[in-house]
Amino acid sequence: MNTAWIMLALAIAAEVIATSALKLSNGFTRLGPSVVTVCGYAASFYLLSQILKSLEVGIVYAVWSGVGLAAVALIGVFWFGETITLLKLLGLLAILVGVILLNLAGGGH
């Protein structure tokens, strides 16, 4: 696996952690989750800046935002007790299909 793709996985993980901490920060009124949020987003964007030296921005952003969105949605359901509906599941599936199609188009290689 290419180093850029490993860095992209780390960028996604940092963004997902940051977004989850944002929910826990209670509008930035809780210090710990607020610090995790800021550091997580900073790490994610730094990694993205390095990844974009070798991969196309469209592919990187599609994968980063799509996988991150799906992961955060699942965390919302399983950790925060948020509801999931058929329409939400179809939306997540559409995102997944879009990311796969973009990668099959060859721009990520």
Rank of each mutant, 00 (worst) to 15 (best):
W64I: 12
W64L: 10
W64R: 06
W64P: 10
W64F: 15
S65F: 05
S65A: 14
S65W: 06
S65P: 12
S65K: 00
G66E: 03
G66K: 01
V67E: 00
V67I: 12
V67C: 05
G68Y: 00
G68V: 01
G68A: 05
G68H: 03
L69P: 01
L69K: 05
A70D: 00
A70T: 07
A70F: 08
A70Q: 00
A71G: 03
A71H: 11
A71M: 12
V72P: 06
V72K: 03
V72Y: 07
A73R: 12
A73M: 07
A73P: 09
L74E: 05
L74P: 05
L74I: 12
L74G: 00
L74T: 06
L74M: 14
I75L: 08
I75Q: 04
G76F: 02
G76M: 05
G76K: 05
G76I: 13
V77N: 04
V77P: 01
F78C: 10
F78D: 06
F78K: 08
F78P: 14
F78N: 07
F78A: 09
F78Q: 09
W79L: 11
W79I: 11
F80R: 10
F80I: 13
F80K: 08
F80G: 07
F80V: 14
G81H: 14
G81R: 11
G81C: 15
G81Y: 14
T83I: 09
T83S: 14
T83Q: 13
T83R: 13
T83V: 12
I84N: 07
I84R: 13
T85M: 05
L86A: 15
L87R: 15
L87M: 13
K88T: 06
K88D: 00
K88R: 13
L89K: 14
L89Q: 07
L90C: 07
L90Q: 04
L90Y: 08
L90D: 02
G91Q: 04
G91K: 12
G91E: 01
G91H: 04
L92R: 06
L93R: 03
L93N: 00
A94G: 04
A94I: 11
A94Y: 00
I95Y: 04
I95L: 04
I95M: 03
I95A: 01
V97L: 09
V97A: 01
V97I: 14
V97W: 13
G98V: 03
V99W: 00
V99I: 03
V99Y: 04
V99A: 02
I100N: 10
I100M: 13
L101I: 06
L101G: 01
L102C: 08
L102D: 03
L102T: 07
L102R: 11
L102Y: 03
N103P: 11
N103G: 15
N103A: 11
N103L: 13
L104S: 08
L104R: 15
L104F: 12
A105F: 09
A105Y: 09
G106M: 04
G106K: 09
